[in-house]
Design a protein around this nucleic acid. Structure first.
Lengths: 156, 156
DNA sequence: GTATCCATACTCGGATAGTGGTTGTCCGAGTTGCTGGGG
DNA sequence: CCCCAGCAACTCGGACAACCACTATCCGAGTATGGATAC
């Protein structure tokens, strides 16, 4: 099980957009992180479809956060890029084979599926508890107030 | 992000092995669940490498749990089949690009990586809290005490 | 009757192809900002 | 001096290949069983 690497890019881009005071083109974000511009564009499109960022076209266009960073959770970014479906997909093997459980006894998910769903929910809750603003605050705490300011200056 | 489908098979097989009182061949488990015998063998080999089950060769051979079901957690099964590495892999993009953070300032993981690691740990904790014995108990609660007894009878 | 040997059948284990999804790339549609001219 | 029209450049958006991991499969190595044989 490996998560799409685009999730990492998207999260860092959201933090960077926190520091920006104008639309930032995808190419600029790609140059800042030294990653493929074409592929990063795909991730940003996913964020745009999810409504987390707004795309501005034209000469001074780019991407902007649609709301305050406190209102964007990490989970929303992850789901936008990686898909909202849970990692574990129950195939209902209890209903197969010679000792198949009859459908009328399968109104609730099986024990295995319940355990995996509970873990998935714990994972989502942890990601839901962290916002982009929290990440930006941690960045400031880790590298000092000049970090985001330097990024803002470089972006222009 | 999609988890290997073999995890579901492995977990159900562990629950079934709880009910067995003698080695169960992989082919029998595959027939019981109506899945590919060759592919299920691969998952059981993973469990064997991890030390969760013991393989017995020869005519009356098969697989047996190495310990009491209370001592085998769902997390151990998941890690045995799916691999122990976390889903999110930090590529340290903060150290790349024109504003790269110097290595001496990267002694601790970045904020993004920390958030993802915390969620991963919550996920693992939830899976660690459930044992194969818990799953077997839930199966009995869902379908009655005859369920596992029927499986045990069918296995011989 | 008992112990030994052997042939047999059955088991697991690792090495080997096929397929879907993620990764990476490209070009076209649309919009904005600038420039030049006219009033 | 102000307004307008046209152009040009830049942006995003979706459609198109390449690579990798998961899926699925096979055959060989090893071992316990059962029977036959010799004592």
């Amino acid at each position: 099980m490996r998560m799409s690497g685009g999730v990492e890019w998207a999260l860092h881009c959201c933090v960077v957009l926190t520091a920006a005071d104008r639309p930032v083109p995808a190419a600029r974000l790609a140059e800042l992180h030294d990653v493929s511009a074409s592929y990063l564009a795909k991730q940003l499109q996913s964020l745009s479809r999810a409504g987390l960022v707004r795309s501005v076209q034209g000469q001074a266009g780019g991407y902007v956060l649609t709301r305050a960073p406190e209102l964007v959770t990490v989970l929303q970014v992850v789901e936008a890029v990686d898909g909202p479906e849970p990692a574990f997909a129950c195939t209902e093997i209890r209903q197969r084979g010679p000792l198949a459980t009859p459908p009328e006894a399968c109104l609730v998910p099986c024990a295995v599926s319940r355990a995996m769903a509970a873990a998935d929910e714990a994972w989502r809750a942890a990601l839901r508890a962290v916002t982009i603003a929290d990440l930006a605050r941690d960045v400031t705490g880790d590298y000092g107030p000049g970090a985001l300011a330097g990024i803002r200056a470089w972006l222009r």
